[in-house]
Design a protein around this nucleic acid. Structure first.
Lengths: 116, 116
DNA sequence: AAGAGACGCAACCAGGAGGTTGCGCATGGA
DNA sequence: TCCATGCGCAACCTCCTGGTTGCGTCTCTT
């Protein structure tokens, strides 16, 4: 584990987490992950409790975060999941917890040996 | 990989992502992960560009999300990272992207075989 | 004992986020 | 051709959030 393993920085990851940090948006992500590319209206439905415009806004946020992409087919706009950003976020979480686990181990051995 | 692997639901994960979705807070998480338990003031410093109270607020948000915990030592309150929630969030991201990858593969084979 | 350092609580403030409504424009189907 | 459907754009509103200041309390140090 030599240093410099392309750590994704705050400025990259924070917006991703921010985009995921809303129940409506996270729900959209789930549905897109499970039921493949879907038109805006299908993402709406009575279960969402939000207007179509509301959904559209959320989709734009997700798009800006790079979490989804869209393409038009006829009069529909289809939305599809992009996993790249999810992978980045996942890697970030991995890094942080790994770093902390390592530090914990080091602290523990310090305490046990009593050295400084 | 048979189904039902204790999927963490929206209501659990969204708050975690929301807490991580702020640059200041994510920065705190990083520092706590790297430099172990730290007092509030140490998290502050000139690099943060925020008041101590601002940091305290962020810490409370992180605490409510279960991402950090604290304990007092003398007149300091030390903050420590908790990895449980990080693991949950990571697992969630794993699930979603895995699901989508599977769906993609299925869609592809559908197109190639021309069935359905 | 007294000053300084670290914190907690509360009030306050500006801006952005989530959400809505209204309207106009294309596209598909009868 | 005409109507319904699916979107896009824009204005608007409310509430939460990030951030600040002020002040009081406790603990450590000298």
């Amino acid at each position: 584990m030599s240093g410099g393993t392309t750590v994704q920085h705050l400025e990259v990851t924070a917006p991703i987490f921010a985009a995921l940090g809303d129940p409506s948006r996270l729900s959209i992500i789930e549905r897109l992950g499970a039921d493949g590319p879907l038109p805006t209206t299908r993402l709406n439905g009575p279960g969402s409790g939000v207007t179509r415009q509301g959904i559209t806004k959320h989709l734009r946020v997700l798009e800006n975060a790079g979490l989804v992409e869209s393409f038009r087919v006829g009069r529909d706009r289809l939305w599809r999941l992009r996993t790249e950003q999810l992978v980045i976020a996942r890697g970030y979480l991995d890094q942080v917890s790994a770093e902390w686990d390592g530090r914990l181990a080091r602290l523990k051995s310090l305490v046990e040996s009593g050295s400084e």
